[in-house]
Write a protein that binds this DNA or RNA. Structure first.
Lengths: 137, 137
DNA sequence: TCCTACGATGGACGGAATCCAAGTCAAGAA
DNA sequence: TTCTTGACTTGGATTCCGTCCATCGTAGGA
């Protein structure tokens, strides 16, 4: 993600301090932050950044394919900067911790044609759930 | 799901008219309703049922394992009464339509031990996305 | 340096879900 | 059958998450 800003500039992005800070927050963290968490971390460096701008920027990054939006539960969406390596997620049902995981095979190929009902299926998202070592005690 | 009410009674549920109506709505519909849709259908039979009661009852049914909660996107959760047959979901990214699907194999077995990071993994949920025949035009 | 269109701001707004205090009632007890 | 009680329901307030919008500011080209 280090050359993210260069790539964005190449796509005609106006490089504002707000966008730079949001991109840096995502770059530095290999976790899965909510929009509000991104806003909080961004505000440490740029105190007057608004929530609307964070939402706008995250939405743009998702549209550009630089960040993946993960809605694991009914709560706040999380933003995953690891967009260029296909992966799935493993979530602890105790504490909510999220890990990127790489299952075997391609989940998409497990859905036979007669189970697609005429849909043009383009994506398969797998969420594994269980207890992490800490929560399992 | 026909003997659902009997099972619930056996678990010490107080059998109120509201709970009966919510269970019947889910029983009769083999689709994936939102809480508000359940409330609307329930209100046809029991006009004064409140939204809070519908939320309470749905939450209890989920806790008891009689209904599955599906949070597909950032929208309203959907409630799937088909809880006793393992299945996955195929969602149209255009109109939001949901279908139950049965992929080959067991998704859980695709996650090798070294990718479990000490977690006790108990569930794998697969969401396929694509365009339905109507939206693909 | 100036211009201007694109981006930022923050407060209002909206949908979804939860919370809470007060009222109601299912079902066991007598 | 009636009584009693605690579980259940109610609906309005509240929270949470996210979007919208009119206005202001500024990045970057001329």
């Amino acid at each position: 993600m280090s050359d993210l800003l260069e790539r964005l500039r190449g796509r005609g992005w106006r490089l504002t301090s707000q966008r730079r800070v949001v991109a840096e927050v995502l770059d530095g963290e290999h976790v899965h932050l909510t929009a509000d968490e991104v806003h909080a971390r961004a505000a440490e460096r740029l105190p007057e950044i608004s929530r609307a701008t964070v939402y706008n920027t995250l939405g743009e990054l998702v549209t550009l394919g630089e960040v993946i939006e993960v809605s694991t539960d009914g709560r706040a969406k999380r933003y995953d900067p690891n967009a260029h390596r296909p992966h799935q997620h493993l979530i602890c049902t105790g504490c909510g911790a999220i890990r990127d995981v790489h299952p075997l095979g391609n989940p998409l190929s497990d859905l036979p044609t007669e189970q697609r009902f005429g849909f043009t299926v383009s994506q398969a998202e797998v969420t594994y759930r269980g207890l992490c070592p800490t929560c399992a005690g």
